[in-house]
Design a binder for these strands. Structure first.
Lengths: 112, 112
DNA sequence: AACTTATGCATAAGAAAATTATGTATATAT
DNA sequence: ATATATACATAATTTTCTTATGCATAAGTT
């Protein structure tokens, strides 16, 4: 259990990105989707996911809608307008971070 | 101050990578080097750097050597043998993480 | 029928790794 | 004289995880 690869700070961006793609999702669905697209590399733990969702909701980035399926309760989350804007910012930030990391890992300053 | 871009967990890998490149460096030098190669994007704070260096030393990944230059004390750090091996691991891990993040950000599963 | 795994949510305790704020001290530039 | 740069360090706090636990229903297994 635990992946030791989920670098702190990126979970929120992952959630926002998935919601941008899929319109609305519920928590458990997010964990499964991440596991699927990363081929098991990333396993979002519930202890990290649910508090993160609650926080994003509290910040006004997500809206919630309850739905009962097969006698089990689901909480569907979707981006608010504010959330859609913020998603773009967070993605840009993550892309910048990745580019920065690649600059350090794969230094061009050693070529000259 | 503070950059909000230093995703938690990657600082140690950055330090190790720089030491792999430069043989030996002192703390302040590391902050300046990172600032330089990232064009000011990443600013390592002292409150993060020094405890990180102490921890890496305690783990046996770094060796220390004091040196007085211009009446100011410098603590030069260099990789131990163990540190060199661990650096390779951490870099692989970071590359995996970056690849995973790119899979999520830039999804191929939306093409089909 | 009993048991395990999957689905679905939640929270609390603890650890890890930052930020922010200090503190000390010397050197250099204005 | 004063501010900025160099050089280290630590304490308090915050953020963000992991790990552990709890509840509840559905589906599959022995």
């Amino acid at each position: 259990m635990g992946n030791s690869k989920l670098y702190k700070g990126s979970l929120n961006t992952i959630i926002l990105k998935l919601l941008e793609e899929s319109d609305k999702m519920y928590g458990y669905e997010i964990t499964q989707k991440v596991k699927e697209i990363t081929k098991g590399e990333l396993n979002i733990t519930e202890g990290a996911l649910y508090p993160a969702l609650h926080k994003l909701e509290a910040e006004g980035l997500l809206d919630v809608e309850m739905q009962k399926v097969d006698n089990r309760l689901r909480k569907y989350y979707k981006l608010t307008e504010k959330g859609t804007k913020e998603t773009a910012n967070r993605l840009t930030e993550l892309e910048d971070y990745i580019r920065t990391m690649q600059t350090i890992i794969n230094p061009k300053w050693s070529i000259s």
